[in-house]
Write a protein that binds this DNA or RNA. Structure first.
Lengths: 338, 338
DNA sequence: TCGTTGACTGCAACCGGTTGCATTCGCGGC
DNA sequence: GCCGCGAATGCAACCGGTTGCAGTCAACGA
């Protein structure tokens, strides 16, 4: 009601100077004060329901115990697990995550970045996966601890945590080739995004290894409508049609599935289809979608851990941590019928 | 690199006192300074790349321009749209949301609440929908602006924004009754949660209106596994089996669907099934799930607006804002076969 | 006995802004 | 020509902690 008790209040009631109270209340310095005094101060604090004012502390220490997390879009099912992973590692260490959605828009991204800078975040986790060079450069110039998720930068400046896109796509193509497919198309993600680029490259290498001619259609965004459009292009143009389609992610695969049906074809009877990311509930689709499971939660926890290392004073080594992915076979892939 | 320039730096270079710089830089008080002086100060500020230190400002003004958002679990597809709605309203007003996941755990919830209090948030949006009475009471006692989403408290203390659960469930039951169903079971959400309670009550009223005997199995959580277990209970115990099942939300419906199949039955041929919330991709299920669309994004925007009202000094009127829902018919409901 | 040491505590500056009040100054009115 | 007034700016306290330094005091060794 009135106001929250301050440290001075506690000190006064305990009959000590506020400096002593400060030391007693801070576990790192409580060894400096007489145990009996400390006990008394703690008792008063508890009785008053005292909680320290983080703002004041931050002003003096210039550490806010906050980190900025930039992601494209929380409603994309890929990101919530990452965010939870981050939070679950940071919270026990006293950090709070400030999550901002960029919608893959450079302006929004810059606005959020500046806001977060103004809030004196101690570090950044950038999971936007887009050409974040200006931001990354800016973070680097200011010496702000930063970790990247999914996409690195060309002269590497900060640690990167990523799923093994190459291994995932290779496993998918191998699987399809083993089933007997010889015409395998790829619905690529936007090449402006790191994952789009990496997966396309992996696809090209993998089909080449099997002596299969490449066939790539790029989508405008990682979304179902974009997948629908791209798939329609394939269906309209290709002759003969591919017997299998490797989508760059699950949403694109969903859109492709709709297009396949709209074209009077069936999956997997006419065309096998694979996704990427293994987002929730793919099991329940008809047919259940074969996909590549990316350990999203672990991407979050590992990136948070790397960030903590840096904020604890470790150097910003631009190492890359690649987490293994796993091919999840389901009903959307089958041997070619013709 | 070195350090960020402070307001004193700006003032020194502009040849004024930092108080003048402060007034010039703050749009609300810039009228107090000579336009020419102000221009000069702004020029210096821009040249230096000055950005105000939010922490220092907050300490003095005791407003942090942050709000705490408590939700159960970000990976539940219900919440990301709500959070985005909140952010999209708050960000243009300069506010940043601190999102915390409680996992429906009282201890975690309290821990996050205290942390956020320590961070001096200016307000709370509580979307936990659980018995948050202690937190709500605490917020009320301290006079902190608060808005509830989904669940109110018994002596109403704060505004509440909610979807129209009653109308949604009623529409579902009406629809099933119209199709000719006379044995309609309900897989209820946990009664400890407001939505579970409200939807069960709505179900009971609705079936009574149709002269249909009620049949309720409560689930332990709003999850697919819990839905699976509950549905199995229904399948094992009920004789004759229900011809339609109203699940309290989509996840429960998904679990129920698995149980129905595991029992050798088919949906909707043997049993019609409905969900609630209309989470993404229900369209793609087999069969596509009939559900009730809740305007989640709008729940977020409206709650944020109500919170802004309070933080702008408005009274904390405990009004309830009920947003309309819409029944979305899909393939999982059909007339009973027998 | 006295100086030394170490444990404990107090003092006061400091972090970077904001803001009530005082001061200065120019100008118009009487 | 003097007074009063308002605009513009400076001064300094303040927000609530943290921390280097200094002071106090008792125990200990020589």
């Amino acid at each position: 009601m009135d106001k929250r008790p301050t440290m001075s209040d506690v000190a006064r009631l305990a009959g000590v100077h506020k400096a002593t109270a400060s030391r007693a209340l801070n576990p790192a310095t409580s060894g400096q004060v007489n145990p009996a005094t400390a006990r008394r101060i703690l008792a008063v604090a508890k009785q008053l329901g005292y909680t320290p004012n983080t703002t004041a502390r931050s002003l003096r220490t210039s550490r806010t115990l906050t980190v900025g997390v930039l992601i494209p879009d929380l409603t994309n099912p890929l990101f919530p697990p990452i965010v939870r992973g981050i939070e679950n590692v940071l919270f026990p260490r006293g950090y709070t995550a400030l999550v901002a959605n960029t919608d893959n828009d450079a302006e929004r991204e810059a606005a959020h970045f500046d806001t977060l800078l103004g809030r004196q975040v101690d570090g950044f986790i950038l999971a936007t996966g887009r050409r974040t060079h200006p931001l990354v450069q800016s973070a680097h110039d200011r010496g702000i601890a930063t970790v990247l998720v999914n996409r690195g930068t060309d002269p590497p400046m900060f640690p990167l945590v990523t799923g093994d896109d190459t291994a995932g796509i290779t496993a998918v193509v191998d699987h399809l080739a083993e089933l007997g497919h010889r015409r395998i198309a790829h619905l690529a993600g936007p090449v402006t995004l790191s994952t789009g680029h990496a997966r396309t490259k992996a696809y090209l290498n993998a089909v080449a290894a099997h002596g299969i001619p490449p066939s790539v259609v790029e989508t405008s965004t990682y979304s179902a409508p974009a997948g629908f459009d791209a798939m329609r292009k394939v269906l309209d143009a290709a002759d003969p049609l591919p017997t299998a389609v490797v989508a760059a992610n699950d949403l694109i695969a969903l859109g492709a599935l709709r297009a396949i049906r709209a074209h009077g074809l069936s999956c997997p009877d006419d065309i096998s289809l694979t996704g990427f990311n293994d987002m929730p509930f793919l099991d329940e689709l008809s047919p259940p979608l074969t996909s590549v499971r990316v350990p999203q939660y672990e991407l979050g926890t590992e990136s948070a851990r790397l960030l903590l290392e840096q904020m604890d004073g470790g150097p910003a080594v631009a190492k890359t941590l690649t987490l293994p992915v796993r091919l999840v076979l389901r009903g959307s892939t089958a041997p070619p019928s013709r």
